[in-house]
Computed example of a mutant assay.
Amino acid sequence: MRFRMSDRDPVDDVGSAHLGRLLLRALRQVQANAVTKLHGCGHPGIRTGHLPVFGYIDDTGTRITDLAARAGMTRQMMGRLVRELEDLGYVTTGADPDDQRAVVVTLTTQGYGFGADGEAVKASLEREYEELLGPGEPARLRRSLALLANLGAGERQDG
């Protein structure tokens, strides 16, 4: 049996859609839009998977283990992403001066340039979402998502 796309507007089904699936699809679309715009800014080698490195690295450099913890991924996966970004010229790695066994990741000049382009892309996307959703709606959505993201945080900390 072949499935075909429905002619109906996907928004019509939002009432019965699983919230988690909608959130995941929205995240993937936001990331895909950002990466497409970043490619247009002169960063053709960047993939969605690289974004957490830039999102969690400190200006003075960050250990791979800390990047992995912040991003919620394994050290091995973060190490792979860092190697890819190092090959592309966005980061450098070196031994931590406080612990020679640890690897510290720092942004290169190109990496800082990417950060500036990323901020411009973020602002552009925010304007697009404001236009799509209506005045004030992205801020309202942000508050709602923050509540969902922190749902149960109190119970986890206490118990």
Rank of each mutant, 00 (worst) to 15 (best):
C41Q: 14
D7S: 13
G154P: 05
T48L: 07
S144L: 12
R140V: 10
A68T: 02
L51Y: 03
L145R: 04
E137M: 13
V105S: 04
E86H: 02
D9Q: 08
G134Q: 09
R4P: 01
R75L: 06
L132Y: 10
K122V: 09
A139Y: 01
G79V: 00
D87P: 03
R140S: 10
T60M: 11
D87Y: 08
H43W: 01
L132K: 11
A32D: 13
V35G: 01
T60E: 14
M1K: 14
Y129D: 05
V105D: 07
C41H: 10
G55D: 08
A120Y: 05
G111H: 00
Y112F: 07
Y56C: 13
R127V: 07
A146Y: 05
G15Y: 06
S6I: 08
A123I: 08
L27V: 05
D99I: 02
D99H: 12
A123C: 00
M1F: 01
P97K: 01
R140K: 07
F114L: 06
K37L: 15
T62W: 03
V121A: 03
R47L: 12
S6G: 13
A153M: 10
L22Q: 10
T92L: 12
A123Q: 11
D99E: 01
L23P: 04
E84M: 03
T65M: 07
M73H: 09
I46P: 00
V103G: 08
I64F: 00
A139E: 13
E84C: 00
Q157K: 14
D7E: 11
